[in-house]
């Protein structure tokens, strides 16, 4: 358990979070490993987990009939994966597949939601951090929308 606490405290995502809260969330976390090719979740699955990737690479994919799977984002070392657990309807919107051996901390979202309900300050701290992640993803998506490498010609 102490080991998990330390892993969490050192992660940039939880930077400056009260050690008391770190302890609380650590209670909802466990270490997991995915082999290359494993699906971590699929589109439409209930969203009751999220992950901190410790090492490896995961691709978020959308399956389009006739085109097959399209990778829309890859996540790697240090990235946070999954935020649909935080908002209704709590469903996964993409497929997530490990591209290589991937180790992660997996969080039980029901457990986390419970802790947040008990400790609204923790909920606020956590949601601020997720808002930042969502903002970064949105930004990266928008940049691809305008085709920043000058693909048009």
């Amino acid at each position: 358990m102490e080991m998990l606490d330390r892993l969490l405290a050192e992660h940039p995502f939880f930077k400056d979070l009260d050690p008391r809260y770190i302890k609380l969330i650590a209670e909802c976390a466990r270490n997991v490993t995915f082999k290359a090719g494993d699906f971590i979740f699929r589109e439409g699955d209930p969203s009751n987990k999220f992950w901190l990737i410790r090492s490896g690479k995961v691709s978020l994919e959308v399956f389009a009939p006739g085109r097959g799977p399209i990778m829309i984002e890859t996540l790697g070392d240090g990235d946070v994966m999954g935020w649909s657990w935080a908002v209704p309807p709590y469903r996964k919107q993409y497929d997530a597949r490990a591209l290589e051996l991937t180790r992660a901390l997996e969080f039980d979202a029901l457990c986390i939601r419970g802790k947040c309900d008990e400790e609204p300050k923790l909920g606020y701290e956590l949601f601020k951090r997720f808002a930042q992640i969502i903002g970064q993803r949105l930004q990266a998506t928008r940049l691809r929308l305008i085709d920043i490498y000058g693909g048009r010609s």
Binding site: K57, L60, G68, P69, I70, M71, E73, T74, R97, A140
Partner: peptide
Amino acid sequence: DAARPDEWRGNVGV
């Protein structure tokens, strides 16, 4: 920016 898994093993993203 985007790729099919069968043609690309690298990163996807900006």
